[in-house]
Design a protein around this nucleic acid. Structure first.
Length: 444
RNA sequence: GUCCCCAUCGUCUAGUCUGGUCUAGGACAAGAGCUUUUCAAGCUCUCGGCACCGGUUCAAAUCCGGUUGGGGACGCCA
């Protein structure tokens, strides 16, 4: 059975690169009917933080990457030590006194153990060759690799050592990780050989680059998954985009749901080339997902964003909220757009865009507004079609072009130059609010 | 510096393994148009690429070598 793992370190937030690694591991496990294991690499006691761990777990859950097992390296220090001692006894490792430069340790009294001998692995001169599922054969000459520290002077294990011990103990048979680990692979293989553990299959994913062609950083775009969530991206859209960054379902398909992806996914089709993260494409995919989303689900997803902007929708009916959401569904780029664009549907004290006012409400529309309000109040039945007939009838009588009155009315009702069709806006706002808002512009 | 990885439109990619069907297809972005009630959306069109040089071959984006370019790794971080 396929057993893969994602091994984040709680020394920072889950970022784009890490989540893509998680995605490919998770997808591979689900496609093969295997297990997806989460291993928290919290051996660096000083830098690991519970809030980071919480954020990582939250982000993974949000994206839908459920794990079958979870382990914490900080609870396994005894195991690493035991294995290291074994290597020592077998003469494959040696002790070395702490290197002098380690001046830290005084600032906090929480350090586990004071200076002790480190345990170091002897790297033999040999050639290491492995077959990467994505890259094919990769070979290294270990002459360029120094002896490797297994257990540090503070008693904690190093990354490469803990990684090998755990991957073996947890029966991980496929290691899918970023390209930046390629150079760690020969070091780890040497350890597998020394320990008589069977070497797993490897698949090294290309890195995701920032718009400047370098490493993805805050400067070249947000990196934390939670930031994307806060910016109003749908989890499905972000996952879809990440999936496309390095893999293609073929057939010119761009929008692919996770269920479908599980059916079509094959790690062998993963790309070798590093991909540049492109916000434009993410935005497009997000808008596509918003467009096809179930309106009920969408309005639920919108709730925190409405709340954030102080818009209380609880005093409106569910049907009303749904109708308004539907009005904007086809034009939203992110969820965050909604409260900004639809605020006038939920409150009367919306801000009137000064530029909109300057452009369309320059002259006095008292006569037109008053006429329209009067007719609207008497309009029966009151629906989108009759509203439009009423409005256009008035235009003819006044000898006006539609644009000459539509824009001023829109600004008066919404405070904006952009938005859904005016007659829909009037319909959902209702006679009372439309009458009030237009009358406010009538000069006494 | 040493070692490793990579190389198709500005970006993401299909095609490369199994040379011919590729005067290289799609998507995003950009530009133009249609529609029109604004902004979007939608539809149509345009722009734009096999990094370079050699080799193999009747035939190369596809195979081989080199060059150049980009990225990564060289911690008692993970």
């Amino acid at each position: 059975m396929v057993r893969v793992r994602f091994a984040p370190s709680p020394t920072g937030f889950l970022h784009i690169g890490g989540s893509r690694t998680a995605l490919f591991n998770w997808l591979y496990a689900r496609a093969k009917g295997g297990k997806f294991i989460l291993r928290i690499e919290d051996t660096d006691v000083k830098r690991s933080r519970p809030e980071y761990l919480e954020e990582i777990l939250d982000s993974l859950s949000w994206m839908g990457f459920d794990w079958d097992e979870i382990y914490y390296q900080s609870k396994r220090f005894d195991i690493y030590r035991e294995i290291a001692e074994r290597l020592l006894q077998e003469g494959k490792a040696y002790r070395a006194s702490p290197s002098g430069t380690d001046a830290e340790g005084e600032e906090d009294g929480t350090e586990i153990e004071k200076k002790q001998d480190a345990i170091i692995f002897k790297v033999a001169q040999q050639k290491v060759v492995f077959n990467d599922l994505i890259h094919g054969e990769i070979s290294f000459d270990t002459g360029v690799i120094k002896d490797q520290v297994l257990i540090k002077s503070d008693g904690t294990p190093t990354y490469n050592f803990a990684c090998v011990v755990d991957d073996a103990a947890m029966n991980i048979n496929h290691v899918i990780r970023g390209d930046d680990h390629i150079s760690n692979t020969p070091k780890q293989i040497l350890l597998y050989q020394a320990l008589n553990f069977s070497v797993p299959e490897y698949a090294h994913l290309p890195l995701i680059l920032g718009s400047d062609g370098g490493r993805l950083s805050k400067r070249t775009g947000a990196t934390a998954i939670s930031d994307y969530r806060r910016m109003g991206y749908l989890a499905e859209a972000l996952v879809n985009y990440l999936l496309l960054l390095g893999w293609s379902p073929g057939g010119n398909q761009e929008i692919i749901g996770i269920r479908d992806a599980i059916k079509k996914f094959d790690i062998k089709n993963a790309n070798k080339t590093a991909a540049t993260f492109d916000m434009d494409k993410l935005n497009w995919i997000n808008s596509q997902y918003i467009k096809i989303a179930d309106t009920l689900d969408l309005s639920a997803a919108l709730e925190p964003f409405l709340k954030e902007q102080g818009l209380d929708v609880s005093k409106f009916s569910k049907d009303y909220l749904l109708s308004v959401v539907k009005l904007f569904q086809g034009r939203l780029g992110t969820l965050k757009d909604f409260p900004a664009w639809a605020d006038f549907f939920f409150k009367d004290d919306f801000v009137v865009d000064p530029q909109a006012k300057e452009k369309y409400l320059t002259r006095d529309f008292s006569r037109e507004f008053k006429l329209f309000v009067d007719r609207l109040q008497a309009l029966e039945p009151f629906d989108i079609v009759t509203i439009e007939q009423c409005f256009r009838g008035l235009l003819v009588e006044l000898g006006l072009q539609s644009r000459e009155l539509i824009h001023p009315v829109r600004v008066a009702l919404t405070g904006k130059t952009i938005g859904p069709g005016l007659f829909e806006v009037i319909y959902y706002l209702g006679k009372e609010r439309v009458g009030r808002r237009l009358t406010a512009w009538v000069k006494q």
